[in-house]
Structure formats: structure tokens, C-alpha cells
Design a protein around this nucleic acid. Structure first.
Lengths: 242, 242
DNA sequence: TCAAAAGTGTTACTTATACACCCATGT
DNA sequence: ACATGGGTGTATAAGTAACACTTTTGA
């Protein structure tokens, strides 16, 4: 029989089980101020442990599925949405994170654009929360959410994500609002414009957003740089015989 | 029976097995130029698939062990060394990365200071390679090594790692050599000094390195900033009753 | 015509880079 | 004394932040 680790002594009694979880971020406008804020969907646990606590959407890994596909499936199952951005966050596997049967979770984080249908999916067991007010979650999921927020802010600072919250065309003011919502501070419109115009991935179109109360702003488009995909890139030409 | 994912339909036939692998970097001086270079140890596979190919050290996760402890154990098993720096790299789990029984690998990367004993551990099945000349490895391990190198260069650029290659006390020239070896380019000694003296984690001592052929350089010490530990930090006061 | 947001210009300030120069020590 | 690496000073460039200003639209 083939065993991939036959060169190492087998130390395990019950092998830890593997799960994929996903932190899903979306932007929703506050009713009062009209400013966008970060929200994320959680699911209610219907079993012990942590019964009735809110938790990150997750599940097992299907047989022929990549880790990333499994995360995308989590996302579709709980929100019906397709991710605009999806990246691996971290693998959590401490023996103390779950009572009794050990679970190693590989966690992804995603950015989506919620539409009406997606938000309406709320039910008794699925609910959207403001990212800074999720309450006490099951397992170590508070740690995971905090870490995902930290990564989002970093990615935004270096200009990698953020676009994923917007449609194909957007004004620089909309993009700035996203930055402000994620970073939690205001940015100077003039300087923001200059920095973004210096970014090669952002290109101006000839379209303008009409219907506003004031001067119509120009619309821009984001063209992702293929060299900037997150995570590792298959480097060695993986046997190009196929 | 309790099952942590009973709220999701069970889709798997054979659950993927889980492994921990570790990319271990060390600095060795080149015999000719005397300049430090990046090396890493690999182990020879003694079974199919990829029999006789070189691969990253790795193994299964023991029952009561954290992911990080498992990586440290890999390291001790193959080199006898203790990591000075150890951080999670990425979880690799594509269904195509290994023939037949699927393996999800959680990969760590480590920095060590090799001593005589560790280097002498070389055998028919364990050998050190220059990081830029590892040849064709088993599985997707070339991708993993490349990604680990990329992360090392990033961490070094932002000044997080690098110290781990050195002893408790070091001269700025030694530290600069480490940077140069990792980044693969020369740095201006004057500017390097200024930048490092502006870093609060680096403090000057009153000791000097005597015995050199020239003016004795001052020795410095690195005091890690507890706020800068890599990876997620347990945030919610994890039930402080214990 | 006026409010409000789009968009531009200018200046101060911080940080990076290149490189000339002085200092201290073993040979 | 002198070669060599340790260590300092300085001029320039490049990027960041603050903020005053002009432009264009809808009401």
C-alpha cells in the first residue's frame, strides 16, 4: 500500500479532520450617513459545541475540489454570490481550538458585491453583521475575523483589493469611499486622485456619471495586473506535456 | 455522535490527508568569496511517487501538537536544529498536486543558524542545497520553495526576519551581508547604517568585535517587538477563567 | 447664482539614494 | 604609514501630506 508519509513514523491515533471556512466581506451603505461600511455574513450553529452561536460559513473539502473552489462554494451556499476577490488567509489548527475531535481549518477571505437577492438571503440561521460588531463567535472565529480585517487593511493600503467592492466602472470618489470605509479614516480627495492616477492598473474612460446633483465625475476602470495575483504562483513549468 | 460539520452535507468519500512541511533556510559562507549564501536542506524520497527525488522535510501532524510545533519537529528531525524564526507560509491542497491519494500540506518556513553538528547531519537521504539551485523537486515543491523565497525577501525588506540568521550580538556589516545575500543585491553601508539605527528594535551595545584586521566595529542587539509577531494573534480574551 | 463636488496647483516636509569624506585599528 | 573597513556628513531626488484654488454641473 502506498502511504505518502511512510518515511516518518506514524504518530497519530485519530487524524485531524480538515475544513474550509471563509470570511466574506461586503460593503453596505449606512441608512443615516450614507457612507459605506464593512459587513460580513455569519451562520448560526445548530449543533454542539457552541450551539446557537454565530460562526463563519464553512464545510468540508469535496473530493475533487481545490481549496479555493471549496471556499467559493461556501460563499455561494451562504450568500448566493460569486467572489470578486478570494485569497487564502491562514490555516488554524491548534489542538485547543475545538473540544475533542480536532479540526484544522484552512480559512479564506473574500470580497463580494452584495445585490438585493443576496442580502435577502438572511434567515434565522444566516445573518449579516457589521464587521466591528460581530459579538462573541464560536470557536476561535473572533481571532480569525480580526486577522482577516487586518489583512484587508493591508491589501487596501497597498492597493490590491478595494476594487473588488465596486462594479466595472467607478468614480474616484466611490473608490475613495471604499478606502475610507476599510481603513477607517478620511483621505484627502486631491492627493488620493493623484496617487490613483499614477497607478497603471487604473485607467480613465470617456464615460461620466450623470444624474448626480453636481458636476459629473469621470468613470474609471481597473485592469488587474497578472503579475500581482495573491499567493504562490506555479513556477516550475509543471510538466507541460498535457 | 458529534460531528463538527453536521450542518453541511457530507460530500467526501475519502477525506484528504493532512501533512506539515517546512522550508528551512540557513546561511552558509561560500568557500571562495566568503560571502554568505542561502541554503536549505532537502530529504530524498524513498518511496513512490517521486522515488529518489528530493523533497521538503515533512510529516503528519501528531495528536496533541500545534501546527507550528509539528513544523519545529520536522526541523529538529532533519537538522537537529531549533528555529530562530518560524512562520506559516501557505496551505497547498490542489487535487492535482499528488497522484491518487490527495494530500493537503500546510507549509511553514524557518530560519536557522546551522552549527557544525547540523551540517554534519548530511547523509545519503538528507542534503543541503543552494536555494537557487535545488533542481527538480518532488510534487509541487519547486513552487513552494520559490514562494518561500519570495516571502523571505519581503520580510527582510520590511525588516522582520534577517536577525534570525545571526547570533545575539552582531555588527551592522554582518547584518548587511545577510540582507545582501537574501535580497541578492548590494546595499550602501552608510545608508544601511542610518536606516537600522532608526529602527527601535536594534540597539547598540558597548561591546566591540576585536580581532578583525581593522577598526573594531560596534556590536548591536535585536530586541523583538511583541506587537510584530507574524501571523494572527489571539484577540478575544479567550475566556480568561483558566 | 450658488452650493457642492470634481479636479488642479503649490508648498512644506519626510524619506530614499548617491557619494565624498573622516576615523581607528592591525599589520 | 597605510590599507581597509567602520562610521559620518551632505546634496539631490522622490514621494507624502496639507490645503488653497479653479471648474463644472443641477437646482
Amino acid at each position: 500500500m502506498y502511504s505518502p508519509y511512510a518515511n516518518v513514523s506514524e504518530r497519530e491515533l485519530a487524524p485531524p479532520s480538515l475544513a474550509i471556512s471563509t470570511v466574506i466581506f461586503a460593503l453596505r451603505r449606512d441608512g443615516d450617513t450614507g457612507r459605506p461600511e464593512l459587513w460580513l455574513p455569519l451562520v448560526r450553529r445548530i449543533r454542539e459545541p457552541y450551539r446557537d452561536r454565530w460562526a463563519l460559513p464553512g464545510g468540508p473539502l469535496a473530493a475533487r475540489e481545490s481549496l479555493q473552489d471549496a471556499a467559493a462554494r461556501n460563499l455561494a451556499d451562504t450568500t448566493g454570490l460569486t467572489p470578486r476577490y478570494l485569497e487564502q488567509l491562514y490555516a488554524f489548527g491548534g489542538p485547543e481550538r475545538s473540544p475533542s475531535p480536532r479540526v484544522v481549518s484552512i480559512v479564506y477571505w473574500a470580497l463580494v458585491q452584495p445585490d438585493e437577492a443576496a442580502l435577502a438571503r438572511e434567515s434565522d440561521n444566516v445573518r449579516w453583521f457589521r464587521a466591528d460588531a460581530v459579538g462573541e463567535l464560536a470557536f476561535d472565529h473572533n481571532t480569525i475575523v480580526d486577522y482577516a480585517l487586518w489583512r484587508l487593511r493591508n491589501k487596501t493600503e497597498y492597493g490590491q483589493a478595494a476594487y473588488a467592492f465596486l462594479g466595472e466602472l467607478f468614480t474616484l470618489a466611490q473608490l475613495r469611499e471604499v478606502y475610507e470605509a476599510v481603513l477607517g479614516r478620511e483621505l484627502d480627495p486631491g492627493n488620493f486622485r493623484r496617487q490613483l492616477r499614477a497607478t497603471p492598473q487604473i485607467s480613465a474612460t470617456e464615460h461620466y456619471l450623470a444624474g448626480g446633483r453636481h458636476r459629473p465625475p469621470r468613470l474609471y476602470r481597473y485592469t488587474p495586473d497578472p503579475d500581482m495575483v495573491p499567493g504562490p504562483v506555479p513556477s516550475t513549468p509543471q510538466r507541460s506535456t498535457e
